[in-house]
């Protein structure tokens, strides 16, 4: 019966901190220390003929940089392989962000501020692209979640889709007594609504061609000639369409924020692969010329 005694619950309140401040900014300090040492060494070591990738200092910085890049790229694997060991993806991301940023310093010092039109500088450029996209990502991760939460309230995506489906069913039923032209307007909404739309729609949150909005506008046009209250079915359809439009707007705001939270990864990740290729080429080429 005497079981192994474990003191604490598995929960730990002290860990309640975001990825940027993980472990009291532990990785920020590590990255700053790394940069400071590199800069100090750059200033102190009198490289001959002048600082470049080919000097001893250059090799060391290059190696550190390359290792960092490989490690940063492995984040994608870490994120997807769920092992039972002790690790925290949050700590990984914290390190990823700060060490990733420190590459700007390390890479630049490695090259001795010397660039040209060659595969070396290509690798450098790609690295900067990855880092800049990462910066956007980190910024998005830091500010957008609140908006997401605020917009969502206590509803879920599944519920919106269900609400829209149920409103569509009600619209179809409510449209039964309408005449042909009016029913066609309703069908515009029930049959042609594209909730998420194109990439541009998603990122801007603007849906100028939204068929539900069009249906509402068309109906408003008809309503102008027929006074409100005179046609009960038309009023009901109108109310239903407006409810659908509200739900659509909420779902689309959600889609927009989520797209913003993801779009940068479509630069970050492919460019990472390009970077890895260019880096390989760079390393091979320097040894080849040697």
């Amino acid at each position: 019966m005497a079981k192994q005694v474990r003191q604490a619950n598995r929960s730990d309140v002290r860990k309640h901190e975001g990825f940027l401040r993980d472990g009291n900014f532990r990785w920020l300090w590590v990255a700053l220390a790394l940069c400071a040492t590199s800069i100090a060494a750059y200033v102190m070591i009198d490289a001959e003929p002048r600082p470049r990738g080919g000097t001893m200092y250059g090799y060391i910085m290059g190696t550190i940089g390359a290792l960092l890049i490989v490690w940063l790229s492995l984040f994608g694997i870490r994120k997807r392989v769920i092992t039972s060991g002790v690790y925290s993806l949050k700590a990984w991301l914290s390190a990823h962000v700060y060490l990733g940023l420190s590459l700007l310093v390390i890479g630049t010092l490695h090259a001795g501020l010397h660039f040209g039109w060659n595969v070396h500088t290509l690798a450098y450029g790609l690295m900067v692209l990855v880092i800049v996209s990462g910066m956007f990502g980190a910024y998005a991760y830091a500010v957008l979640p609140r908006e997401l939460s605020l917009n969502r309230g206590e509803t879920t995506q599944r519920q919106w889709l269900e609400t829209i489906r149920s409103l569509d069913a009600q619209l179809r039923e409510a449209a039964q007594p309408l005449d042909r032209a009016e029913a066609d307007i309703v069908r515009l909404s029930t049959e042609q609504t594209d909730i998420s739309g194109s990439l541009l729609n998603r990122l801007t949150g603007q849906y100028p061609n939204c068929s539900t909005q069009r249906a509402i506008n068309e109906l408003a046009r008809i309503h102008r000639s027929t006074p409100r209250g005179s046609n009960a079915s038309l009023d009901q359809v109108d109310a239903l369409l407006k409810r659908k439009q509200e739900t659509l707007a909420q779902a689309r705001r959600n889609i927009r924020i989520k797209s913003l939270l993801q779009i940068w990864l479509y630069i970050h990740v492919p460019v990472t692969f390009a970077l890895l290729a260019a880096l390989t080429a760079h390393i091979i080429s320097v040894f080849f010329y040697w």
Partner: peptide, 23 residues
Amino acid sequence: CSGKKGGPACVRACPTGAAIRVS
């Protein structure tokens, strides 16, 4: 996640630190 050395997978795998388990 009983028996898993690293504790709750949901918390470990959250990249931003949003997911926490508390008593």
